[in-house]
Design a binder for these strands. Structure first.
Lengths: 256, 256
DNA sequence: GAACTCAGTTCCGGAATATGGAACAGACAG
DNA sequence: CTGTCTGTTCCATATTCCGGAACTGAGTTC
């Protein structure tokens, strides 16, 4: 057969990686024949490659002969280092959002009924946020928290909603209204509800599941994130969050 | 060079998988040179293989040139299907434990301050447990829950400890004593603390981190799991949990 | 129960593909 | 500038992988 596509000198690995990706990404565990057909490889080649992948625990074959992600993937997922690696994958996106807005950027995930900040890009202004990494903030009065609540990554805690400022939403019904508007717009805002003078917007990050896995937020002083500048910041935030989502394989579902 | 080791016909893939495993399993992100040395491959070959793996998002290179698990792994870990796959990996071990003991076997993980049962093997007796999958039981009075508490997979909830039976441990200090004895023995017991007549033992499953990720339990009626039979059941349970742990790459740390 | 079908593995000759030594390209140090 | 260290590219060679065909084994059908 003539050389057609890649002059890389790694044909076997390219093909094996193709099969592996199909197994990992595929919605349903795939059968041998499906994989062979989808990849366009000869039966014999497919068999050899899949056997090799199986031998190295990259895929696993169930008794029905369907292929699942192998032990190496399961092991990795449970090792607990996935958080750190999420940060690493997200960092360039956060940096980009920092460039676009100039404000403080945070990546937050749900942890024990709070938002845990796991990565940050600092504002380029003198007046900006301090370092929030490691800080846990309440779900109901932060932009990230509202996003996590609205998109199924967290549940409203049983305890009464603490009034951090006079603007904080403390009524559960009112919070529900707020959350459905967050779902509709695709982003959340906190306008001096967490701390006087602090305004933030946040957008959800998806990774394949139906619930968000994290939130990206842009925060700054009310003086710089007023009614005129906020829409642009929100748009940037949503866009970057969607870009990260698509890298992570999440459907980009703006609303609902 | 003469053919030495494997007559498989997948040399390139074997080598690439070797490198990939080193990157994923390695405690520290590895550099190019370290990988080349550890695998014993020629520089040129290592370079070509790693570039191919990177192209397929199986590894990722940071600005310092160190290699991290690629986007495919991060994506997989966050997709939320890891639970289901843990069950699939664990099933044969649970089956084996079921064979050994004849009793009901469950795999439980922490979820929202309870133990969520995610897989089960049924007792071979008429009098046995019903199906617990999907059922959430309290942490402080189940064997699995005690294991998860003792080995850092869960924290004692803030709420008062519910007295499910008259034997349930409701004192926090008493629970702490119990947990440290669990850590010492390497397994937990619940003796009619959850439900009258129900006895269970459980052992922790590790996956590389310092905290347990799940617990395997053996449960049955007090009549069949009395003082004479319980030690054997506990030993079997611990052994199988350790076998699963080592498949998942967890250090087999009995105590401490 | 023999003939067919379908899923998947093994075989094998041929040639395309991966291999590794050496040359090369940067980056940093002295 | 010279030396060292990391990593990539080049290229001729022959080793390794490819794919068609034969084979195996489990169902199905008649």
């Amino acid at each position: 057969m003539a050389v057609v596509s890649s002059p890389t000198g790694t044909q076997a690995i390219d093909r094996a990686a193709l099969l592996l990706t199909q197994v990992i990404q595929g919605a349903e565990p795939a059968s041998f024949t499906e994989l062979a057909a989808a990849s366009g490889l000869a039966k014999s080649t497919t068999s050899r490659l899949l056997t090799a992948l199986e031998r190295h625990q990259l895929v696993r074959r169930d008794p029905d002969g369907r292929f699942w992600p192998g032990e190496l993937f399961v092991r990795y997922a449970w090792q607990g280092t996935a958080d750190a690696d999420l940060v690493a994958v997200a960092q360039p996106y956060l940096d980009q959002l920092g460039e676009l807005t100039g404000e403080t950027i945070n990546l937050g995930i749900e942890s024990g009924n709070t938002v845990q900040q796991v990565a940050q890009v600092d504002s380029r202004y003198m007046i900006g946020g301090t370092n929030w990494v490691g800080l846990a903030v309440p779900l109901h009065c932060s932009a990230s928290g509202k996003v996590l609540l609205a998109f199924g990554a967290a549940a409203v805690p049983a305890e009464p909603l603490e009034a951090r400022t006079e603007r904080t939403i403390v009524s559960r019904t009112q919070l529900e209204v707020e959350l459905s508007s967050v779902r509709e717009r695709g982003f959340a805002v906190t306008d001096e509800e967490l701390e006087p003078g602090l305004v933030a917007v946040a957008a959800p990050v998806f990774a394949g599941g139906l619930a968000a896995i994290a939130a990206i937020s842009v925060s700054g002083p009310a003086s710089r994130l007023g009614a005129s500048q906020l829409p642009a910041a929100a748009a940037n935030c949503v866009e970057v969050a969607q870009a990260l989502s698509s890298t992570l394989g999440g459907q980009i579902e703006g609303a609902r």
